[in-house]
Simulated assay, not measured.
Amino acid sequence: MNFNNKYWGLQIVFAILVIFFMFYNPIICILIIGIALLLFAFYAIWFVNNLNKNGIESTGKIVSYESDNEGYKTPIIEFTIAEGKTFLGKPYIHGSSDLDKFRTYNQNINKAVKIIYNPKSPEKFILKGSTNGFVIFFLIIVGLVFIYFSVINLMGYNAIF
């Protein structure tokens, strides 16, 4: 998800809190990260559910793939909305695995894919039937583990940390 433009102030506050507690009490730092992961996952669940209820289903085609600095690939999809305007962009939520670093995905170029987009802002779209659920589930599990071990440790019990 792209939080860079809208929530930059919140990101700065989060970074300052994490850095401060990293030196003051690292357990609180882990607790803050766990809470942030849960909030991020719940926002993603809300966004996907909202799109499934209110979004418009359409068909797009994969134009290319974009690799980030670590080699993970994200599809660039072109689609036309109901008003006839054409959009080109990346899915708002997309999960990649380590296998994506080694695959070329050239066979998927110009392949038709189903998408669901937000009619109010069509640049916010997701691939229909993608594996976003696994990514969100993973974030929830990691967030809960971080919170569990930090609360146990803050209560004075011996935890792994």
Score class of each variant (00 low, 15 high):
72 Y>C: 04
89 G>M: 04
110 N>V: 03
91 P>W: 06
10 L>A: 08
113 V>G: 04
44 A>L: 01
125 F>R: 01
82 A>V: 13
79 F>H: 01
134 F>C: 04
134 F>Y: 11
65 Y>F: 15
120 K>T: 14
86 T>P: 02
83 E>D: 15
138 F>M: 13
48 V>D: 11
107 Q>L: 13
24 Y>W: 13
107 Q>R: 12
93 I>E: 00
71 G>I: 00
47 F>D: 07
112 A>D: 10
51 L>P: 05
90 K>Q: 11
125 F>P: 05
52 N>I: 11
139 L>V: 02
93 I>R: 01
113 V>M: 05
50 N>R: 14
141 I>R: 06
126 I>H: 05
92 Y>G: 09
108 N>Y: 12
117 Y>M: 05
42 F>N: 03
142 V>F: 10
81 I>L: 00
138 F>N: 09
16 I>E: 01
55 G>M: 03
122 P>S: 01
81 I>Q: 07
23 F>Y: 12
65 Y>H: 14
144 L>W: 03
2 N>C: 03
139 L>E: 05
138 F>H: 15
126 I>S: 01
93 I>V: 07
50 N>M: 10
65 Y>T: 04
73 K>T: 03
149 F>D: 13
92 Y>A: 14
140 I>S: 04
37 L>H: 07
95 G>C: 02
89 G>N: 03
68 D>K: 03
29 C>I: 04
72 Y>G: 04
38 L>S: 00
26 P>N: 08
140 I>G: 00
70 E>N: 08
25 N>D: 11
19 I>W: 08
82 A>F: 06
55 G>E: 02
137 F>S: 09
58 S>R: 01
139 L>F: 12
65 Y>L: 07
16 I>M: 06
11 Q>N: 15
156 G>Q: 12
49 N>S: 12
57 E>L: 06
53 K>S: 15
7 Y>C: 00
66 E>M: 11
5 N>E: 10
29 C>W: 09
61 K>H: 10
42 F>V: 05
100 D>N: 10
